[in-house]
Design a binder for these strands. Structure first.
Lengths: 165, 165
DNA sequence: GCTGTCCTCCGACAGATGTAGTAGATTGCC
DNA sequence: GGCAATCTACTACATCTGTCGGAGGACAGC
């Protein structure tokens, strides 16, 4: 399972938060579906050429895109600052593209937009909705439980601080 | 607060689930940002005319849109099956628009898309991300805790049922 | 050196979306 | 009956996105 632990994600999220990137930006990055799909392929493969991304799409999603379609999309992603490209000696003259934004960053950007658009920024309804409509494995439920406890601790600490200090 | 309880949302979600609408549809409804904003206004006002929606947008978001812009968007929403319109006796000749899809439905559709696009359909990472990066009030945390317990119960019951027949 | 292959760059085009103007019907009022 | 306000319907247009083709450069093999 990709669920060896939530910690990696938790860490990433904390990092983002530490960078002050969690609030205030309504919509940092706007990506279409195809762009996102290709970016996802790039996350999964790691740095890759146009052809590698194209193959990856075919193999994993059965998606048949023209070489130039992938290329155009990668170029647009580069223009948006989501990927970088450079020439690598070991890949002929083909450019190697590398994702510059993380999956979590995109995820957060989209979630934020969703929150603003649907619930005036309040996150709880979305969490509820996710928990109610999606399936979770028992393991995941345990993980979520511990996360909530952690949230709870933070809340309690804050309250203490607020009172005592 | 709008958080008198989560139960309404929970109910809606269960209803959706009962309708078999929770999985399998990749992308039922595609809405742009402006469309969503106007649909949101309609959720908030209840059935309303073009002008009322327009005013609502100005008052709540400071959004200044031309009358016809709102109208066009509402018409497009109607074509997409998200709203209905009819002539009401008490509103002159103006059509009264009414939201036909719920906020939760849209929310779910978008969340689902996000899940598929980013995490191959696995919901847990999104929940984690939301819980880590967004703020929750102590009350909300309590609510979430009880939800998790409920999830936990369901999981346990399933296990029992699976065993017992 | 020619040819085939692969790559990059550029241009193209259709559909969706955001935004709005205009024409013509309807209605209230003098 | 005519004018002003308001509404609907239609049209328009720029931008973004998805998708791709063709021109031309680089390189491997004959």
């Amino acid at each position: 399972m990709a669920w060896a632990g939530l910690s990696w994600l938790v860490d990433v999220c904390f990092t983002l938060e530490a960078c002050g990137m969690t609030r205030s930006h309504r919509r940092e990055i706007e990506l279409g579906d195809a762009e996102l799909e290709i970016l996802k392929a790039l996350w999964e493969t790691g740095p890759a050429t146009v052809r590698e991304v194209m193959n990856r799409l075919r193999e994993t999603s059965g998606r048949e895109l023209a070489y130039t379609t992938v290329q155009t999309t990668l170029t647009r992603l580069e223009k948006k600052g989501c990927v970088t490209s450079r020439k690598a000696a070991d890949s002929g003259q083909a450019h190697v593209f590398r994702a510059k934004v993380s999956r979590e960053r995109i995820s957060q950007s989209r979630l934020r937009a969703l929150l603003e658009q649907l619930y005036d920024g309040s996150a709880a309804p979305l969490v509820v909705q996710l928990m109610e409509t999606e399936r979770f494995t028992p393991d995941e439920i345990v993980q979520l439980q511990s996360l909530i406890e952690r949230l709870d601790d933070v809340a309690v600490n804050k309250k203490k601080k607020g009172k005592g200090g």
